[in-house]
Write a protein that binds this DNA or RNA. Structure first.
Lengths: 146, 146
DNA sequence: CTTAGATAGTTCGCATGCGAAATAAATTGA
DNA sequence: TCAATTTATTTCGCATGCGAACTATCTAAG
């Protein structure tokens, strides 16, 4: 229970995420699809035509976060913004054919990442990790807090 | 062992890190010290006068990463760059008095974060998490790899 | 001694994503 | 109906950090 070890947890978490992100970006130099982008592709793969805000919520991104992500992916011709017919403020996001193809590739890439993420750990251990990561969302909430 | 769960690990890791970073930044609005900055403060607290490259290695940052971090922290008057007397290419980093104070505050902040990071988990569970995070560094290496 | 390489940092352009403020459209209330 | 508020998204300035290319210095080899 040395405090040293917990300090290290903060650091380890940061580094692990950075490594993963770099890795995923490096694995798709052709398509140029990054980790964040494949997240949105994934969301659209399951719910094509979601509102930007819904996509943001699914990815835990605030308005500026999605807005920028959508900008870049639109520029890359992976997705399309189409006005919501019922709400003049809102936009719905749709996969382009290229986006649909990129999504399929992304899924394949994720399979490899998945293997690396769990290799050498038992299901029970992975459950602990998943629980720890999940719990962090309530421990470090977005809004205000004591 | 549903693939769904592992997909979620990637996402959970990303979100957890983002939440933690946001949280730490929000907790020091006064000093403006961020998570990354407190990392460097910490390194200098233990080894004042390190080379930039050494600091980068300690924080798992590449040359551009430290260079920028040092720029911002120098501008914030937290650290100083001083030429290495023996090597005209190299710079050594030193805490300013303000930096030393900020480091002390950072440590206090980390105590709170530590508590939140481990609350509700046994030592054995935290060990699993730490091992998983550590292992990721070899699973997703920086350089080239198959 | 001089040149070829290695090494330490910097710079550039980029992706990511935040907080705060702005814009615009929808909704609610008097 | 029409102002006040809420909601969806954008924009701005910022911090973080990468890869690639550059600069400057140091080291090694002939």
């Amino acid at each position: 229970m040395s405090p040293r070890r917990e300090h290290r947890l903060v650091f380890l978490l940061t580094v692990a995420q950075r490594r993963l992100q770099r890795w995923m970006a490096a694995r798709s130099p052709h398509t140029g699809v990054t980790a964040a982008q494949s997240g949105l592709l994934f969301v659209l793969g399951q719910r094509d035509g979601v509102l930007m805000g819904e996509a943001g919520a699914a990815l835990d991104l605030g308005p500026p976060g999605i807005s920028g992500l959508v900008d870049r992916m639109t520029a890359a011709n992976l997705i399309e913004r189409r006005a919501d017919p019922d709400d003049g403020r809102a936009w719905r996001l749709w996969l382009t054919p290229a986006g649909r193809a990129a999504m399929a590739q992304s899924k394949a890439g994720l399979a490899d990442v998945n293997a690396r993420l769990t290799e050498g750990f038992t299901d029970a251990e992975i459950d602990v990790v998943a629980r720890w990561l999940t719990t962090m969302q309530s421990r470090f909430p977005k809004g205000e807090d004591e």
